[in-house]
């Protein structure tokens, strides 16, 4: 039993790492543009499929295709913002949310058009897992957790050490003051999309490594990603790390008592509980 729980905890940390990367993007975008970006899950899928094209089409190893997928997805995110969201920003956050719902559907259709509706995998065959006592650890899982740690650290350094990163925090803190201080908001918004989109791509690739690629992979993760962001206090990227881990662990550990099909329900229940007890999240967000 104890080993089973430990094993589940390992899976929980893995899926928590993936959720964290998605939730950070959602939180950054919310902090600066004040809207819940519903196309974020599908942006993750786009990233995963970009990498798949390089792996399956050009024979790249996955690690080498990741940077291209990140850049490509960042570009897609910025392009969507510039063609659609930018025109709706002055209207209202609600319209942006509805628009992003449409973008989510459109992105998924594009994925289906280009890559087809079927399951895909980066590498066929079974990875030889490492065994530590009765615990099984797949190399992919180690890469996912390490990758998430590196990215989160890099983001932390970006937000606290660079002028652009600080400007992002400033805009999230106090938009009006940022404007009167001369911070170029449009440039910061573009960088925000690039960072959020890039992180989403990595989350998508990790999800593809952990499970498989499918056009609906991103949308299915949207609920847990938002649950993680809300748990951590939406608009607070650091809270997203804690939120992602809690949701990831809870979803995996819950399979001891309930049917694994209902994993999303666990994320949902935690989110609802949080909304009742402490809507501002673990760390004070922007409710």
């Amino acid at each position: 039993m104890a080993t089973d729980l430990l094993q589940l905890a390992i899976y929980g940390v893995v899926s928590g790492s993936i959720l964290t990367l998605g939730a950070i993007g959602v939180s950054l975008i919310y902090g600066i543009l004040r809207f819940a970006h519903f196309a974020h899950g599908d942006l993750m899928a786009v990233g995963a499929y970009f990498a798949f094209s390089l792996v399956a089409g050009l024979g790249f190893p996955l690690w080498a295709s990741a940077p291209f997928a990140v850049a490509g997805t960042a570009l897609v995110a910025v392009a969507i913002d510039q063609t659609v969201y930018r025109r709706l920003r002055r209207v209202s956050p609600i319209i942006l949310l509805i628009s992003s719902f449409g973008i989510a559907i459109a992105l998924r259709s594009v994925v289906q058009l280009i890559w087809g509706p079927h399951n895909q995998v980066y590498a066929s065959g079974i990875q030889l897992p490492w065994r530590v006592g009765d615990i099984v650890i797949k190399p992919d899982h180690v890469w996912i957790v390490l990758g998430a740690i590196v990215l989160v650290t890099a983001l932390h350094l970006f937000l606290t050490r660079t002028k652009m990163g600080k400007a992002m925090r400033a805009m999230s803190d106090n938009m009006d003051l940022a404007l009167v201080s001369g911070i170029p908001s449009e440039r910061v918004i573009v960088v925000t999309w690039a960072v959020g989109g890039g992180m989403a791509a990595v989350a998508g690739i990790f999800l593809g490594m952990d499970t498989r690629l499918h056009p609906v992979m991103g949308w299915s993760l949207l609920l847990p990603v938002f649950a993680a962001a809300i748990l951590g206090g939406i608009g607070r990227p650091y809270g997203a790390i804690a939120g992602g881990m809690v949701i990831g662990l809870a979803m995996e550990m819950s399979t001891v008592v309930i049917d694994p099909t209902y994993k999303p329900a666990v994320a949902f229940a935690l989110m609802v509980l949080m909304l009742i007890v402490r809507p501002q999240g673990l760390f004070k967000g922007n409710p």
């Binding site: 809207f35 819940a36 519903f38 609920l223 649950a227 209902y262 999303p264 329900a265 989110m271 809507p279």
Partner: peptide, 18 residues
């Protein structure tokens, strides 16, 4: 109902999925 409309939107995604 007491929260911002974005929370309702996310919650309805969840309830539909469940």
């Amino acid at each position: 109902m007491r929260l911002r409309s974005d929370y309702l939107a996310i919650a309805t995604i969840g309830i539909a999925e469940i």
